[in-house]
Simulated assay, not measured.
Amino acid sequence: MAAVAAAGVLAGTLLTGCGDGGDGAGTHDGGKDREQHKVQGAAAVRGAYDRTAGAGTARMTLKVTTAAEGRSVTVRGKGAIDLAEGDSVMTVTAEGQRIEQRVVDRALYQKLPGEGGGQQSGDKPWVKIDLKRAAAQGGTGGQGVGDPAQTVAYARGITEKDVTETGEEEVGGVRTTRYRVKVDVADLPRGETLREQVGPTLPMDVWLDEQGRIRRQQIDMTVKASESGGSASPRQVKVRTLTEYSDFGAEVEAEPPAAGEVTDVTDKVLKGRSAA
């Protein structure tokens, strides 16, 4: 699944005053206040990436729900992440299978489920995907679920007119302010390719704590697959990604597995993606 961006249409409501008589001045002031509020909110969201990365490390949970053609699959992850470097250690659970996952120096390692880790007796227990190569050869495979640190970077490509503060909520017992945002897809890595799959904007909700750090981020997307085989309509995949950060400063021990226990499947993955 090469899905990093988004879809759906978020309805943005712009409240405008229609003065009747002597209320014109008050309406004007209210409009200025609202505009100032949006500017402040946009600045808070744009700066959230640097403030979150500045915390160094954090514990994180991840929930990705994918739905297509009447079937839904949920993937859950739990672990710790180096927010500045992108290294992470996680346990990922999907459809009854538990997978140990590490991201180290832009390489994704996953320990296959089953006895001994391998799918067959004698197999090496770990597989590796080089995310740098995947990103360099096109598409969005280098910034997906396999590299959780990339998710916070979405907050950087926004404009003032597309930020709405929706209220205060508690996330993990921490008071936060929730913002609804539209990210300009063109500002993201490989934006033009992404735009063809998900449209011009990425709808996103972020919850910021009192220090301006991201505590929760939700992205709802509808990804349009490439048309093939003469299909009358392209396949669409709906994806909801929910990420939460806590315990900033937590220890992260992300080390690559021993070389003798790893099979590099980068070429196979890229070949499969190209065929798809």
Rank of each mutant, 00 (worst) to 15 (best):
T243P: 06
A153N: 13
G167S: 03
T61H: 07
G30A: 06
V237Q: 06
M204Q: 15
Y154S: 10
D147W: 05
P148S: 03
G118D: 03
R51D: 09
W207D: 05
G86Q: 07
A84S: 08
T266N: 04
D130H: 05
T65N: 04
G54Q: 04
V174Y: 07
T166K: 13
R133F: 12
R180L: 15
A134F: 02
Q137I: 14
V64I: 08
I158V: 01
G116F: 02
A186M: 14
A149M: 01
P125S: 09
S231H: 14
M204R: 11
G56W: 02
G30V: 02
A80C: 06
V181E: 08
G26R: 12
P113C: 00
G24P: 04
L194P: 12
M90V: 02
A275L: 15
R102H: 11
V265F: 11
D50H: 13
D187H: 05
G12P: 10
G199Y: 00
G167K: 01
L62P: 01
P257E: 03
G230A: 00
K78T: 14
D205R: 09
D123Y: 06
R215K: 05
T166A: 13
T201K: 14
T166C: 09
P256C: 02
R180A: 14
V152I: 08
R76N: 11
G56M: 02
V239R: 07
E210I: 00
D29W: 15
G116Y: 00
E170Y: 03
P257F: 10
Q101G: 05
G12Y: 12
K111F: 13
S246T: 14
G172T: 01
H28Q: 15
A250R: 03
G86A: 10
Q217I: 01
L108I: 03
G12H: 06
V206I: 02
D247H: 14
V92W: 00
T177H: 15
D82M: 02
V237K: 06
K124W: 00
G24M: 09
S274Q: 09
T164C: 10
R76L: 13
R273D: 09
H28S: 11
A275D: 08
T166G: 12
V239T: 12
D50Q: 13
E85H: 10
V4D: 15
Q110Y: 08
L208I: 00
R98D: 15
A155D: 10
G114E: 07
Q217K: 10
T263V: 03
G19A: 06
D105S: 14
Y109N: 03
V9S: 14
Q36A: 05
V145Y: 14
D130C: 11
I129P: 01
Q120S: 13
A254Y: 05
V185T: 09
V198D: 00
G172H: 06
A11Q: 05
M90K: 11
A258Q: 15
M221L: 15
A11I: 13
A94K: 11
V198S: 09
D220V: 01
E255W: 12
T151R: 12
A5Y: 06
Q143W: 05
E255F: 09
V127W: 06
E251V: 13
V269G: 01
Q120P: 04
A275Y: 09
T151W: 06
E196M: 04
V174A: 07
L14G: 15
